[in-house]
Amino acid sequence: MSNAITMGILWHLVGAASAACFYAPFKKVQRWSWETMWAVGGCVSWIILPWTVSALLLPNFWAYYDGFSLSTLLPVFLFGAMWGIGNINYGLTMRYLGMSMGIGIAIGITLIVGTLMTPIIAGKFDVLIGTPGGRMTLLGVVVALVGVAIVTRAGQLKERKMGIRAEEFNLKKGLLLAVMCGIFSAGMSFAMDAAKPMHEAAAALGVDPLYVALPSYVVIMGGGAVVNLGFCFIRLAKVKNLSIKADFSVAKPLLIANVLFAAMGGLMWYLQFFFYAWGHARIPAQYDYMSWMLHMSFYVLCGGLVGLLLKEWKAAGRRPMSVLSLGCVVIIIAANIVGLGMAN
């Protein structure tokens, strides 16, 4: 396995670790509605940071985006909006299925859809099934799904042992939302593929290869921002017990703390895709769709490891922890299989 591929896999791991930890600062927010908290964090991650980073990278911010036709930008924006719909469905999936079942189904579906549909749409599926390296990467996807399934089972055992249930368990509604989440969340993978002309234009302007994907986030995350912020503001305006005015009327010290914690959560959410871009830049072009598989499987891996470090599994007993450990090992094996496949 080449050093470039190894570094690509490691950067995907760093990004996934940030994704697994991003909600920790949000848990510190007090006396705010979820909608206000999500909107403040979202403004940081989907608007402020992508625009700021792009302004620092590009020699002429507006000229760069003016150089693209609507036919280039619109698919990138719409796939970003698709990803934004997946974000909303993700939260609702947890509500009706619980964390373990929700994550397992949603992540499993988005891993498959985001990884395999990209080469199919691009007419490159023969790379997967027609070459030894392609078949090995495909094997890595299958092994990753097995790892996700094992980690999901560990979570179910933990929840059963600790008596944890979804707040409004509804299998029928939850499964529908999980499938929708899995499909729509893959929009980020599709958006990155559609944004390749933007990456090439950034490279032509002298932007470092590690950063060429970042200017496209202005458009991708702009699509996600429209969906997420629209959802939050509509609920804040229409739901009786929600009020953004009331949320911002809390005591000044608490208001400042809430804004800072929400902004920190937004920063960590953005950093997952900052490092995703770094990892994506190190993956060979013919296998760049594997970035999504690495990101999603590492997200599950890091979520389990963070739970262990925070001692969330201590009261669950030995069996759930053993199953979780097995699942994490399987995901690590999957990443190595994919890495070896890309090196062939």
Rank of each mutant, 00 (worst) to 15 (best):
F261P: 00
C328K: 06
K238R: 15
A19S: 12
L210Y: 14
L177I: 13
I103C: 09
R135S: 15
M136Q: 15
A257V: 00
L214M: 13
D66C: 10
P253E: 08
G134E: 00
M136H: 07
M342I: 02
A17H: 04
A257S: 14
F125A: 15
W278G: 03
V151F: 02
A281N: 11
I283E: 10
I332P: 03
F77D: 11
A281Y: 07
Y23A: 12
G114E: 06
V148D: 15
L242H: 07
Y287F: 12
F233C: 07
Q30S: 13
Y96A: 03
L210I: 05
L175V: 05
A204L: 10
A204F: 04
M136D: 12
Q272S: 11
N344Q: 14
A263T: 01
Q156G: 02
K28A: 09
V207Y: 04
W278Q: 04
L260F: 09
E168R: 12
I331Y: 02
V226W: 06
Y65M: 09
G42R: 05
L138K: 08
V329F: 15
L305R: 01
S33A: 08
W32P: 00
L310H: 07
A315D: 15
A144R: 11
Q286E: 14
A19G: 09
H199R: 15
N228P: 00
V14A: 09
A39C: 14
I150Q: 01
N87H: 06
M7S: 11
L57H: 08
V151G: 03
A277Y: 10
A277G: 13
N228Y: 06
G133C: 03
G102A: 07
A204D: 11
D126P: 00
I331N: 06
V143F: 00
M37K: 10
